[in-house]
């Protein structure tokens, strides 16, 4: 923790620069992409990168402060990154009308069912374990 000189300066830079941290996270995504491709994993590169960062954090090889600010920025602006996918609607004018309404009904009712079943399962299990398992 108390190394002096250039190492300390590098550490300081990493802990304080949002831009550097965004670069680090992007680098992990890039490596994840490459690894997923090379090993033919059916998992997106971002998830491989996430697993790598998590492993480094849990093993104590990486300080959470060297990626925390960058991560907060990315997560806070995540909705922006979803926008381009919606633009695919430009190529699907057939969805304007009855077909679109039907699809919307499928998605809305399905999502309601998913949310209710997931939340009730987790809540009931959490209540059950907190009652039966002493912590």
């Amino acid at each position: 923790m108390h190394t002096r000189g250039p190492l300390l300066r590098i550490r300081y830079a990493f802990h304080h620069s949002r831009l550097l941290q965004l670069g680090v996270l992007t680098g992990f995504w890039f490596l994840g992409q490459a690894a997923a491709e090379a090993l033919r994993l059916p998992v997106p590169g971002g998830v491989v990168g996430m697993a790598a960062v998590l492993a480094l954090l849990l093993s104590g090889r990486m300080s959470v402060f060297s990626v925390r600010r960058g991560a907060q920025t990315l997560l806070a602006e995540m909705l922006l990154f979803f926008v381009p996918a919606v633009m695919a609607l430009l190529d699907h004018s057939e969805f304007i009308g009855v077909l679109g309404l039907k699809l919307l009904v499928v998605i809305l009712t399905g999502t309601l069912c998913v949310m209710a079943s997931t939340a009730l399962t987790v809540d009931l299990c959490a209540r059950w374990t907190s009652r039966h398992v002493a912590r």
Binding site: L22, L25, T26, F28, W29, G32, Q33, P44, G45, G46, V47, G49, M50, A51, V53, L54, L57, L58, V64, V67, R68, G70, A71, Q72, L74, L75, M78, L80, F81, F82, V83, P84, A85, M87, A88, L90, D91
Partner: peptide, 28 residues
């Protein structure tokens, strides 16, 4: 059209990759 839009803006969607990596921090 969609291709016209994506030609310039596709990199915005690519940022979802690093954003997925970023989920390691709240999980940790």
């Amino acid at each position: 059209r969609y291709v016209d839009y994506m030609r310039g803006a596709h990199w915005i969607m690519l940022a979802l990759g690093p954003a997925t990596v970023a989920f390691a921090i709240p999980i940790y």
